[in-house]
Simulated scan of single mutants.
Amino acid sequence: MNTIIGMLLVIGSVVGGFILSHGHLATLLQPYELMIIGGSALGAFLISNPLSLIMKVFKGLPSLLGGSKYNKNAYLELLGLMYSLFVKARKEGLMAIESDIEEPEQSELFSKYPKVLKDHHALEYIVDYMRLIVSGGMNPFELDNLMSLELETHHRESEQPASALNRVADALPGFGIVAAVLGVVITMGSLDQPPQVIGEHVAAALVGTFLGILLAYGFVAPLSIAMEHRARDEAGYLEVIKSCILAQVQGYSPQIAVEFGRKTMVSSLRPSFQEFEEYLKEQR
């Protein structure tokens, strides 16, 4: 929602200010200038990035129109799942959760927490390391190193789409200048025309520069920053999983293990101790 409101505010402020300053809106409608800038930027984007990264960018852009899925309810479900897993493992033994982590989609325990079940990365992260714990053979220090290594790799990969989009934002003012230069070339070829025609060509050239700058700093750069925030939201979610699992491996009780995870959360999303207790009571 913030993305949509922000875009409308950018458009409304720029266009509204232009019209109130006695500008003619039709002057800004230069589809060929937009084609030069947008097409060139898209072409450069395709040249500079592998197909897999291009698909991630286009797949991630629509998700920015809504809010982040990593809200307080999502964190409550995550803590509830980790607590349930740890309690079952403590009461019935580690082998009791083997069927749950081997087929989480068929697990009655996991089915109580649909938000986690729908999150592919988080689900895979949980079941992979719980599977290692069940199989044994790794001490907490080794497990910590392995989990951190995977998180670092995941963080680098998840931030690549934002970085690729940010490079497009850096290039857009340059493509705006290209459009303006081409407009000047057209103007120079029309010097035998009436002043009104020449003025229209000059205006179109200047609009090219305007569009390049506006698209860069009003839309594409903010979208890249928003995409970066989404990547960090996911990273924080995975960090909570890591904290819970490591605490459990070190022998803490389920309640204390999930408390390690709760303390890892940012304050704006962290449920209070009482909220989590109430959530657990509702799940029973």
Rank of each mutant, 00 (worst) to 15 (best):
N166T: 12
M147C: 07
P50K: 10
L42P: 04
F110W: 06
G67N: 14
P254A: 02
M35C: 09
E275V: 11
L94H: 07
Y129H: 01
S84G: 03
S268P: 02
D144N: 11
D128I: 00
Q160Y: 09
D100M: 04
D144M: 08
R167F: 11
H121M: 07
M1Y: 04
E239N: 12
D144E: 10
F260I: 02
Y83D: 08
P104M: 13
S107L: 13
S13A: 11
G212E: 11
H155D: 15
F276H: 04
I97V: 13
V14P: 04
D100C: 07
S163R: 05
E234L: 13
S111A: 08
R131D: 05
L191T: 11
E278N: 15
K115C: 08
G136R: 01
P194F: 09
F260E: 05
Q283F: 06
A235D: 15
L143G: 02
Y129Q: 00
R90K: 11
V134H: 01
I37K: 06
N139H: 10
G137H: 00
P104Q: 12
I213A: 08
T3A: 05
I177G: 07
I47L: 06
F18K: 10
I256M: 11
P114M: 07
V134R: 01
G43Q: 08
I5S: 00
A231N: 09
A235T: 12
T187V: 05
L246P: 03
A203S: 13
P104A: 15
A231H: 05
E98A: 11
K112G: 11
L9H: 01
S111Y: 01
G12M: 08
G66Q: 03
L76K: 13
M1H: 09
S243P: 08
E142A: 09
A226R: 15
K263L: 14
V10T: 10
L149S: 06
L61H: 11
G176Y: 15
I47W: 07
S63N: 06
L206M: 10
L9E: 06
T3C: 04
L172Q: 13
L132A: 09
L29A: 04
N73H: 04
L146A: 12
P114L: 10
A247R: 03
N2T: 11
I198Y: 07
I133S: 00
L53G: 15
K69R: 14
S99A: 15
G236F: 09
L280T: 12
A257V: 01
S268M: 05
Q160I: 05
T153M: 02
F141L: 15
I4H: 02
M188N: 03
N145I: 08
K91C: 03
D119M: 07
G261Q: 10
G199P: 13
L109F: 03
S68A: 05
E108D: 12
Y217V: 05
E103V: 13
Y32L: 07
I37V: 14
G16F: 03
F110N: 10
D144H: 12
G23W: 00
V266G: 11
P222V: 02
L34D: 01
P50W: 12
E159I: 09
I198N: 14
L206V: 11
E33G: 14
I241K: 12
S21K: 01
